[in-house]
Simulated scan of single mutants.
Amino acid sequence: MKRQIVLGLALSALAAPAMGATAPSAVSFAEGAVAGSLTGTAGNPEEGMKVISDRGLGNCVACHVISAMPDVAFQGNVGPTLDGAADRWSEQQLRGIVADAKKTFDGTIMPSFYKNEGYIRPGDAFTGKAAEGELAPLLTAQQIEDVVAYLLTLKE
Rank of each mutant, 00 (worst) to 15 (best):
M1I: 14
L7T: 15
L7G: 11
G8K: 07
L11H: 07
P17D: 01
A18L: 12
A18Y: 08
A18K: 06
G20K: 07
A23K: 13
A23M: 07
S28A: 15
S28R: 15
S28Q: 15
F29Y: 13
A33H: 02
A33K: 03
G36T: 14
S37W: 00
T41D: 01
T41Q: 04
V51R: 01
V51L: 05
C63G: 05
H64M: 09
H64A: 07
H64N: 08
H64I: 10
V65I: 13
M69S: 09
D71R: 10
V72E: 04
A73Q: 15
G76E: 08
V78N: 13
T81E: 10
L82A: 11
G84A: 10
G84L: 06
R88P: 02
E91M: 09
Q92M: 13
Q92V: 12
V98R: 02
D100M: 08
K102S: 15
D106A: 14
D106T: 15
G107W: 08
M110E: 08
M110A: 11
S112C: 11
F113S: 01
F113Q: 03
N116V: 04
Y119R: 07
I120G: 08
R121Y: 09
R121A: 13
D124N: 03
A125Y: 01
E134G: 07
P137C: 09
L139R: 02
T140W: 03
Q143H: 04
L154R: 04
